[in-house]
Measured scan of single mutants.
Amino acid sequence: RKEMTAACTPRRRIINLTSVLSLQEEINEQGHEVLREMLHNHSFVGCVNPQWALAQHQTKLYLLNTTKLSEELFYQILIYDFANFGVLRLSEPAPLFDLAMLALDSPESGWTEEDGPKEGLAEYIVEFLKKKAEMLADYFSLEIDEEGNLIGLPLLIDNYVPPLEGLPIFILRLATEVNWDEEKECFESLSKECAMFYSIRKQYISEESTLSGQQSEVPGSIPNSWKWTVEHIVYKALRSHILPPKHFTEDGNILQLANLPDLYKVFERC
């Protein structure tokens, strides 16, 4: 597991931080080997919608929660590849102030007048994250320049770009939802926020969305749709870069829909 690298990086740093090793061990302890084997050997059937997909393993048909699986995938990559990410360069710098204002204007932020003026909160978020810029760049390849612009994001899987519609809320939550006081809790909560931002979430995906850094293989055609990215990038990574937690067998994120021999018997009677 320590050699797990989802995106190509030129050289690998050895990380011996106790906090990170502890988080890696927790993933191992909570892992479910049968689910790992199923995901490793599954045959992708198709997307139901951005949140759900169908896959077959041996004779069984499964309904998989793409949102939760991708979130767990990105969390584990962030923990196992800690401080070893490439950088996704933004085509132009994104001012943190503008991103924070967009987030505060969104109902998702939960902002009320009692929280104070949005401009003041946005300025605080910019200054707060600028103070964390060195650590964010060093460990997470999340790059913020001296003017308070976001200029780079971590490359977690080759050819995958997170849904940038979720970027404003991500920046807001970096400042408000991460435990910045304790090292282990900081790395864990920061990785979880980043994983949620990178995950496939239906509120940020339309039929026209593209999450891939590449064009489709047909010359002159439109960019790959999110469905292509889910199948050929995300579920491909799920084959080798995730140890599913045991609770996925109990919380409805992986559901067995049918045993195909039983279905064949039904059709034979028709």
Rank of each mutant, 00 (worst) to 15 (best):
E147V: 07
V178E: 00
N16C: 14
Y80S: 03
T229R: 05
Y235R: 06
V87D: 11
R173K: 09
A94F: 06
G220C: 09
I14D: 09
D181A: 03
S106L: 02
R13G: 10
Q214R: 10
L23M: 10
Y235L: 13
N159V: 12
L260P: 03
G152S: 03
F85T: 13
M196W: 05
L174C: 02
V48E: 13
Y139T: 06
L211K: 08
V230L: 09
A237D: 14
P154M: 00
R1I: 09
N224G: 08
G252P: 02
K118G: 15
E119Q: 04
P223T: 06
Q24P: 15
I144M: 08
T229M: 07
P168W: 00
S199G: 12
E26Q: 04
M101P: 00
G252K: 04
L255D: 08
V230P: 02
L243A: 10
R269P: 14
H247Q: 07
P219M: 10
R11W: 15
T176F: 02
P163S: 08
V178C: 01
V45G: 09
S216Y: 08
A103V: 15
G116R: 02
I27E: 15
T9N: 11
P107N: 07
L136F: 08
D98N: 04
A94G: 02
I15D: 12
L255T: 03
N179E: 07
T18Q: 05
L211R: 09
E92P: 13
G220W: 14
E177Q: 05
K60S: 11
T18M: 12
Q30L: 11
E134M: 04
S43W: 14
A175M: 15
E25W: 15
K130H: 14
L96P: 00
T229G: 05
R13I: 14
T249R: 10
E250W: 15
N259P: 04
L190M: 05
K130Y: 15
T59C: 10
A55S: 10
R36Q: 13
T67D: 13
T210N: 08
A100Y: 00
S225A: 10
F248Y: 06
L238E: 01
I171V: 07
E37N: 11
I242Y: 13
A83N: 03
V161M: 04
T18D: 06
L54G: 08
L211I: 07
G120I: 15
Q76V: 02
I171T: 05
T5H: 13
D251H: 09
E92Q: 04
E193Q: 12
V234T: 13
L164N: 03
G213V: 09
G46R: 01
G120T: 06
I242M: 09
E71G: 08
P163W: 04
E134P: 02
G86W: 13
E217N: 07
L260S: 04
L99C: 05
N224M: 06
E113R: 11
P154A: 01
S19T: 05
G86T: 06
A53L: 04
L63N: 05
V20I: 04
E177I: 14
D251S: 04
G116N: 09
E29F: 14
N84Y: 12
T176G: 03
T59Y: 14
G148H: 05
V266D: 15
Y160R: 00
V126E: 13
Q58R: 10
P93W: 01
F267T: 01
Q215G: 10
G120Q: 03
E33F: 13
Y80C: 05
K68D: 13
G86S: 04
R89A: 13
I79M: 07
N259I: 03
